[in-house]
Structure formats: C-alpha cells, structure tokens
Design a protein around this nucleic acid. Sequence first.
DNA 1: CTATTAAGTCAATTGTCTTGACTTATTTTT
DNA 2: AAAAATAAGTCAAGACAATTGACTTAATAG
Lengths: 409, 409
Amino acid sequence: MNDMRLIRAKSGTNQEGTSAHNRRVMIDALRLNGQLSRAELARATALTKQTVSNIIEDLERDGLVESLEAVRQGRGQPSTPYRLVPEGAFAIGLQIDRHVTRTIAVDLVGRVLARGEANLPAGGPATGVRTILELIEKTRRDLTALAPHSEDRLVGLGAAMPGPFGVEADADDPWMMAAWQNFPLLETLAAGTGLDVGLQNDAAAAATAERMVGAAHGVDHAICIYFGYGLGAGLILNGELYRGANGNAGEIGMILSLPRGASSDERMPLEHRASIASLCKLLDLDPADPDLYGRIDAAAANPDQRLLRWIDAAAFEMRAAVQALETIFDPQTVILCGGLPPGLARLLTEAMMPLLPSIADRRDRGLPRLQVGFTDPWAVAIGAAAEPISRTFDPRFSAILKTRASAAG
Amino acid sequence: MNDMRLIRAKSGTNQEGTSAHNRRVMIDALRLNGQLSRAELARATALTKQTVSNIIEDLERDGLVESLEAVRQGRGQPSTPYRLVPEGAFAIGLQIDRHVTRTIAVDLVGRVLARGEANLPAGGPATGVRTILELIEKTRRDLTALAPHSEDRLVGLGAAMPGPFGVEADADDPWMMAAWQNFPLLETLAAGTGLDVGLQNDAAAAATAERMVGAAHGVDHAICIYFGYGLGAGLILNGELYRGANGNAGEIGMILSLPRGASSDERMPLEHRASIASLCKLLDLDPADPDLYGRIDAAAANPDQRLLRWIDAAAFEMRAAVQALETIFDPQTVILCGGLPPGLARLLTEAMMPLLPSIADRRDRGLPRLQVGFTDPWAVAIGAAAEPISRTFDPRFSAILKTRASAAG
DNA sequence: CTATTAAGTCAATTGTCTTGACTTATTTTT
DNA sequence: AAAAATAAGTCAAGACAATTGACTTAATAG
C-alpha cells in the first residue's frame, strides 16, 4: 500500500482495453468513410470478420450504429453497410470568451443541434458562472426538445477558453483572463451540470472542430492556426490533439517575434499584430461589441488603407509563422481558422502568398500547404462540444491503458 | 480482396497486442526505476500481481530480466527485486555524417560496448556504402568478442543522418547530403546486414539518446535542440519521438529567422548562424578535419573576439528559438545537446541567459527550463543505436495495434 | 508467542479474439 | 438452365491472456 519512494511507469492493459479500442476503431472507421460493411470493416481494421460482427452487433444494440439497405456490388452475397447513428450520442460545448459565452449541442456526427449565447458580465467568474450554468441548462432543454432521449446519451461537457492555463497571470493583462484562470472551473461545471467536463484552450477547440467536421477530417498531422481575439494553434499530431506537459501547447500568439521594420531588439508577442484584438485596436473597434464580426466583415468587404496596412503587417509575420510551423512539425497541411470573417481570412491568406519556401515543398503533397478552415465565431464552441465526443469515441493510446486505482505510486 | 475505393481506418488490436504492451510496460518500468519487485511492478502498472508474475517469468526465461537478492523492508514477506539484464539485447547504431561515419554497439540498458569510425570518401553512396557496411561488420565482430551470444540478441540497426528526407534537394547545397537523399539506404543496409533497419535524422537520434540514457530519461515532454554541423530538434511528445508526416519534424535549422541587427526582409535559415557549420566558416576551420571537435574545444577554452561575436549572434537567436519552442510545445524541459564541446555549450547557454519570458515560467516546474545534455560527437551514433532498442522494447501505441496483413485497403 | 502485514503462488474463471467449416446470395461461365 | 466461382456473413469450438479469491510463505510488531 504505502510505497514511499516514487515509482514511475506507464500502465498496462487488459482485454477490456482491447475491446474498448476496437469499438473506437470501428466508430472511427465509420466516421471517416461514411458507411462500411462488416467485411470492409474487417479489412480496414485488420480484425477478423467474426470480431467485427460481434462488435457491430454490440454497437447496434447500443444505438451507435445502424444498418442500411444491402447493396449488390458484383459477385458474392450483397453486403450490408453500416453507418453511425447521429442520435447515438450528444455533447455540450461551452465557450468562455472575454465578453461573451456560447453553448452548442452536437450529436455523434458533429451536427449542431442547439446554440446559446450570452454576454459575460464584467465581474468575472463570481457572477459569470451563474450565467454560464443557466445557458447550459437552456441548451440542454433545447436539445431535449429536438431529441427526447438526448439526456441519457449525453457523454460530456467540453469547455474552451483562452489560455494559457496555470501560468503566473498578470492581473492587468487583457490577453489573459486572469480571474478565470484561478477559478476552479472544471469542478464548478461538473458539480453544476452533473456531466464529465473537459477543458481546452480556444485554439485546441478550433482544431478539434476542424478534425471532426472540418478541413482536418481524417488528417493525422495538421496544424490549425486559430486566428481569434488572440492567436493560437491547435496541434493534431498522430491523429490526436497534442496538449503539452501543462495543456498549453500551441500558444503561438505569445511567441516573441519581430514586426516588419522593427529592429532586432524589439521583439513583441506575435498576437499583438496578428489577431482580432490588434485589429480592433487599429480600427478603433470595441471588442465587446456584439456585432464585432459583422463590422469586421464589412470593413473587409471594402478595405481602407489602415486595414490594408494591418493585413500587410499581420501577413508578414504569419507567413514566417507558417514556415516555422511547417519546419517544426512537418504536417500534411496548415489550416487557418478562427473567429474571423471569411472575407478577412481570404484577404489575409492572399496577402500571405506566396508562402515562404520550406520542407513542405514536396512533390508528393496530397493537401495544400495552407488552407482556410472554419471562419465562424462559433467554431470554438463547436470544437468544445466535439471534445467529449472525441474523448469518448476516438481511438487513442490512453483509452487502452488501465487507469490507476487510486494512490499506488 | 479488391477494394477499389480507399478505406481509411486505424487498425484494431487483440490479446497479442495486450501482451506485447504489458511486456514493454514492464521493461520500461524497470528501466526507469532500476529495480522493482513483482508487487511494486503490479502497483506501478495497474496490473494484477498474478499477471506481473506471469510476465516476469516470461521475461526471465527470455533473458531480459533477472532477480536480485531478496530484501526485507519491514513487515511481510521479503520482496525479490528484478532488473533488466544488460546482455538481454543489443543494437547497432550507424551515423552517416558529411565527412565521417560512425558505428556504435549498445546493450539493453544503453551501455556502449563498441565503436567504429571511418572517413567517408567524397564519392557519396556509390563508394560510401562499402565503407559503411565494412564498419558495421567490424563493430559486430568487436561486439561478439565482448558478448559471445550478442548476434542472437541483435534487435536491429539504427541509422541516423542529417535530414530533411524526401525534399527537393538542391544538389549544390552543402547543408543537404543530396546524393544520399536519393539513395535507397534502408534497403541497402537491410540487405547488407540482414538486420531490421530504422532511419532518423540526427537531431531525432540525439533525442533518442537523451531519452534512453541522458537528460530526458523518464521525461515525457522534452525538446532536444541538437546543435551539430547543422541545427535540429528532437521532439519527445507523450513519451515518444515525434516524426511528423514525412519524418522531417524538428528541422528547426531551416526556420527563416532574422539575424541580430538585420532588417526584417533579410530572413535566413537559423542554422546559418547557429551551428557548427557557421562556426567553422567564421573561424576558418575545415569541417572535414578529423580533430574539429578538439579545435573548437581549444577555441572555446580561450575565446577570441570573433568567437565571442559568433556566440553573441547565435545566442541571440537561440534564445528566441527556445522561447518559441517552449511556447509551441509546452515541454517539461528543453535540452541543448549535440556534437559541440562542453566548453562551447557552456559559453552558449551562459550567453542565452536570462531566457526570454514564456509560458514555461511556472511555479510548479520540476526541471530547469534549459539544460545541457550530451555534448559529444558520438551522441548521434548512440541515439542511432538506441532506436532499435526503443522500437523493440518501449511502450508505444503502434506496438499494440495489429499490422495490416498485406494489401487490403 | 500471536497477530498482523505484505509478497507471491495456485487453480479456476472470465472475457475477447481467432479459427475453420458452413450458409447464403449473387454473378460468371459453361 | 445448370454449375462454378466469388464474396458476405454466421456458427461453434478453441486459444489466449488477464482476473479472481483463496492460500502459502516469511517477515515484523506488540
């Protein structure tokens, strides 16, 4: 019982882990391919037909997959394709931003079924938590109205807010939401909702959304640059979101870089030029304006000199950032996404062309070096909602391993 | 058989995968802790005592672990600790560098048992492969002299050479070893040695060495900056080396960055200032000089103005690189390693202090933000040799999964 | 000397995937 | 029109690996 000295080790696994993994693999294969027959699943997963049959039977009984009409495809018995049942699972996503909070309900295939939005009072968590819990309640009621048994199939609540987490916060830094950083958010939400709660930063959430239903669908190595109020990156490595040692991986907005024309001692955080926040500052827009998105959209539709200068400065550094990320990660693609209007995203990416030369210049490329993903203020909330789905159903190493009972080592 | 359309999926697993993983976990636990009893192993891995007993019995029969004398540690039956048998497995490492090739033989615990070195003729692979195969042969004979049954326990050959791989090579670029890039190295080595061959770039190999027997031992999130003839980084993420989509992750020397004092349009690859190659250029040293290491060591012992200027310039950009890597990866530590003499490594790291502020400034840090690892021209060869050991014995996701039979989808 | 604690074993059990023969349904060949 | 070939999918027995709970062994504490 009482091991005084620290024992370090990874945990082992057992048949339960095997079975759980194979179920997840099956669901993943159906998600990626839309529909597959048992025989196709067996070939795709390297499992035997019999094993696939058993697992599919289980999943069907659990209401996660359903059969479609048999299809004749040549010689041999016609195959019966299976697909995911959208109503097989639901999750709630919560975005906490500086001035606003949003909720989303999604189903197993990532479709959005309900949304909610509210302004966040300036008081920080003390008053904000009440608003948030009410908004979640409302979204659950809306979801239940659409899908009566959704409450029984709710797999969790995913929260997303700007990072970084756990870092010495400068209380006056508007980039950090200092008050929220020191608040026991996970515990409060878990107690207030009765759900399993996960937390990611907003860039990670955006990447989760891209992976489930966006440009990174089925891509195992992708960097999602999240261009929002701040700047971040969601790292999809080996098909999983990478979180780093403290959940702060990808906070690229805090990289100290040199503005165009500055001298080499004047390094400043990248997001001071490349972010919606910097744009607001330049265009004298109020970040708390509920129609900020619309105003930026309008400005992008008919860009003035100030905006063009901002784009030039941001693109200059973003071009370097993309080159650096490609060089560091060797991804299949880089995706620009976030809460910026599509028009602005287009202007920005156009200004970033041509991209700087990098190891991403390969003859065998399958995907473009840079593409635009979700440009939608709801992207983070969608990704937040996708996180519990991913956590519950995606194949991942940690899902195979036994969990340590309690104390031990 | 003939699935025309592409089916994408991860593969499933079975009891074999379970068993393989648990064996690896056991070996990993012993490697990390030195020695553990069966009961301790059970607690550490979350497996049952009985399972641990069965696996340990297997491993003992296979000659991978051995028992030590029982120790009394209070009330209860004394426990019998087990440890890895160094002679349980061996591997050969091969470093191919621009002017020299090196071989290393290591055992299961990473001890170096034999070394070989040879100049690489200028002719590229056409003539170089013969030299290399002979050197490997010699090293295997040396190893057999020390450990008679080593040939039966050779788990593979690990090769390391400068990257990037598979990129459009500029034949004249001295940074790339263009001729070697287009040579079927893996196949040739496999055919010439009869061993399983793996390939990594030199920075990855250095990181593998740090992880098995160096500063990253037991650390799951570490960035190893490899300061060699070129500049690279080995990325240890979630306890595994990350390779990227094409095996080129971590080639940070190719990041375009701004030299101190340059104007913002003059971006140049980072390794043009921060690498042994750049130092050679500045100090008029011949990179092919067999005693390059000694000459640099001497220069660092008594630095002149030119060297100090080089250090200042390199440290200026390395400081930014460390800040950027910390911000991107959120690692537990950054390790500076490579084929540079310790004296130079000390000068360089001192010049990098104080580090730039980053999200790595946390109260709960367990490891220093920056530390110095191997500073040894043999580090890459050691890491190359460690790779087959790691591939064979370390717990990893891919080791659990079934391998696809052949074609399928 | 007895009770307690902990390490480790034994033998039966359970859960999961695998195997090989078999059934079903369709197309191709004769 | 019948037979052969092909492929999907099922059945029932088997193999494998971890688990369970009782048991043995060996030490210390009181």
